[in-house]
Amino acid sequence: MDLDFKRVGLSTLTDILNVVAPPISEHEVIQIWLSHDMSGYDGIENIVYRAMTRVLEQVEGGDLIVNRGEESRPKDDAGNAARELNTVEGYEAAVKLSQVNLDELIKIKDSALKAKKETLSSIQSPTSYSYVYLRVQPYLTSYSVPSTSALASTDGSAPAEQSKQQHLQFLLYLTDPDHNLIHSTITQSVPGAWLGIWDDYEWVEDLVAEVLRVGVEVIGQEYLVSRMGWGGFVTIVLS
């Protein structure tokens, strides 16, 4: 049944929210399993760690561990891996691939992580663990933009000419199965033409890394808001 907020006090509502998604505790370790198919970009883990650490500084609890999921490791020698983003075309394809890869990763890790939790609970450790799965999926989109000649026309007689430009974005898809939380966001787009000059100019990598960092902070903030109950109005359905 739907929860009637008029009939419950603030303390009761807080208790319910804490059961649904308990706030991050002082002795909690948030272990992030990172999934992506990019090769030759070894700094992704560091970007995620720094961005999530900055978000968690807002609360007193929560230590952070970032691991790379084995399901997406390159099959060849990592030391000789060519730089490849392994993009997909369009947002919908990025979402579907992210869901498939995270489902696979969760299945791989599920039994081992459950055994770890049982071991910790048996020794009455004050430390609790939350397992979060994050997919970083680059994808390409094409946008129609007015050409230079169309912009120069002022009499309105000439039809507006259009040209298409390709852009790179990242879908960030986060799930916390234990707390039934799922969040996703997309990053600022950057010109797809930059991919062709990535290895020639350091500023390309710097700007793309900054775009990705901001995106991770956004989705990390969404996760923190959900865990800490900062989201304002919440719809809760009790069965």
Results as ranks from 00 to 15, higher is better:
98 S>L: 08
44 I>N: 08
224 L>A: 00
183 H>C: 11
78 A>Y: 03
87 T>W: 01
83 R>H: 09
192 G>Q: 02
133 Y>W: 00
175 T>M: 03
14 T>L: 00
49 Y>V: 11
5 F>A: 11
167 H>L: 09
119 T>A: 04
55 V>K: 06
82 A>C: 04
110 D>I: 03
188 Q>L: 09
151 L>S: 09
40 G>Y: 01
28 E>W: 01
90 G>N: 11
194 W>Q: 07
184 S>P: 00
147 S>V: 13
204 V>T: 13
8 V>P: 07
191 P>C: 01
169 Q>W: 06
119 T>V: 01
107 K>V: 15
16 I>F: 07
59 V>W: 02
56 L>E: 00
135 R>G: 04
179 H>C: 07
102 L>D: 04
156 G>W: 01
232 G>H: 11
7 R>L: 14
14 T>P: 06
195 L>T: 09
67 N>G: 00
37 D>E: 11
226 S>L: 08
156 G>M: 09
230 W>V: 06
214 V>I: 15
28 E>I: 06
141 T>H: 03
16 I>N: 05
157 S>H: 11
69 G>C: 14
204 V>D: 03
5 F>M: 13
3 L>H: 06
86 N>K: 10
97 L>R: 14
154 T>E: 05
202 E>S: 14
136 V>W: 04
37 D>N: 13
133 Y>E: 10
217 E>M: 10
182 I>W: 06
217 E>G: 00
133 Y>P: 06
146 P>G: 07
101 N>L: 12
226 S>A: 14
73 R>N: 11
38 M>W: 01
198 W>E: 14
231 G>N: 13
49 Y>K: 10
86 N>F: 02
165 Q>V: 11
146 P>M: 08
15 D>Q: 15
142 S>W: 08
89 E>R: 11
76 D>S: 14
99 Q>K: 11
86 N>S: 12
25 S>C: 07
131 Y>Q: 03
67 N>L: 10
161 E>D: 13
153 S>K: 07
139 Y>S: 07
55 V>W: 01
134 L>D: 03
185 T>C: 03
205 E>H: 04
95 V>A: 06
211 V>A: 00
33 W>A: 08
77 D>E: 12
45 E>K: 15
65 I>S: 02
72 S>H: 07
9 G>R: 06
24 I>D: 03
236 I>P: 00
207 L>A: 09
196 G>K: 01
27 H>S: 11
78 A>M: 09
173 Y>M: 08
74 P>Y: 08
124 Q>G: 05
206 D>T: 14
114 K>S: 08
75 K>D: 12
165 Q>M: 05
101 N>K: 13
168 L>P: 13
55 V>I: 11
202 E>L: 12
43 G>W: 02
45 E>A: 12
44 I>T: 09
70 E>Y: 09
38 M>C: 13
238 L>G: 02
63 D>C: 00
237 V>S: 04
145 V>G: 02
37 D>K: 10
148 T>D: 14
149 S>D: 15
66 V>K: 01
45 E>Q: 07
189 S>M: 10
85 L>C: 03
180 N>G: 07
153 S>Y: 05
48 V>C: 05
90 G>H: 13
154 T>K: 03
88 V>C: 10
201 Y>T: 10
182 I>D: 05
164 K>Y: 02
231 G>T: 10
180 N>S: 14
95 V>R: 02
60 E>P: 10
8 V>S: 02
150 A>L: 02
40 G>K: 05
170 F>L: 07
100 V>K: 01
82 A>I: 09
182 I>L: 09
139 Y>N: 06
221 Q>L: 08
107 K>E: 13
